[in-house]
Design a protein around this nucleic acid. Structure first.
Lengths: 146, 146
DNA sequence: TTGCTTGCAAATGATTTGCACTGCT
DNA sequence: AGCAGTGCAAATCATTTGCAAGCAA
């Protein structure tokens, strides 16, 4: 087993808080997501780590999502995309290719996020909503599909 | 059949451009979505118009989505939500209740949208993407689930 | 040994599709 | 007549789950 990274330690702790072990299968998933460096689908994840059983991958993704380690993204395509939770990385948004489904992370500067939060809170309040977080998806064509 | 509204006329034209007729079943869907005044799931749509056959509703929603009349939203819940396309209403975003799945429309003022478009174009360009449109989802708790 | 994990196979459930029939035009 | 549209039932397919066996504390 590879030496523990800071990410592994953070994941271990979050899993422990939900009474879950950081097994080798779960490490393979976390490592796969870290290496991919972009949200990936389940088939892509299995390609990255061929020893994973599909059902266990789905099961662990789901368990780790509840534990705050994984975030599941769903856009219109056939498969959901998975990435590490923002608490383990950083707040970001997504660029989605309408042609091939590729998803990439993007970040905005703090001033813009500040502006957004303020605007969202005001509009949400007018509808009686208590806003908790937000997601921005920018759709377009990726370099390969231009 | 009810008299044609401006919306009906606009839908008729868009469907015609795809060689589709504006049949009574399709009118029932469009009317249901207009009356609901928020994105609804397929079961909700069938409740609003009990005469619709499920398969035809799905089929027409899909055809009308391709014709630019309908927009399909997918947010992780069990069912997708459907609403009238923005070209028939106005550019808006969504407030989503994490507890019950309710979706409501929200709009931002022009200045903010302008700021957003500028920011999105710049960031997308840095990744080689050509941005086409965007979607902002604000997650939280609705008044009923507070 | 207790209980979390895993892999396999089977089940689930939203959505899609084949097909025969209906109804515009 | 000719073809778009519809409803029913069956098929699809990503994801979930039951279960028996494996493994860590």
């Amino acid at each position: 087993m590879a030496p523990k990274t800071d990410l592994d330690r953070a994941v271990t702790q979050r899993l422990a808080e939900s009474d879950l072990r950081y097994t080798s299968g779960r490490q393979a998933i976390v490592t796969g997501l870290r290496v991919a460096d972009r949200p990936v689908t389940l088939p892509e994840l299995l390609d990255l780590s061929p020893d994973l059983a599909q059902s266990s991958a789905y099961r662990n993704l789901s368990l780790m999502e509840n534990a705050g380690v994984i975030r599941r993204l769903v856009h219109g395509g056939d498969h959901a995309h998975y990435e590490l939770a923002e608490e383990l990385t950083e707040h970001h948004h997504h660029l989605i290719c309408e042609s091939c489904g590729l998803v990439r992370d993007i970040t905005f500067d703090g001033d813009l996020e500040q502006t957004l939060d303020t605007a969202f809170s005001r509009v949400a309040a007018s509808e009686g909503f208590l806003p908790r977080h937000h997601a921005i998806d920018v759709y377009g064509r990726c370099a390969g599909c231009r």
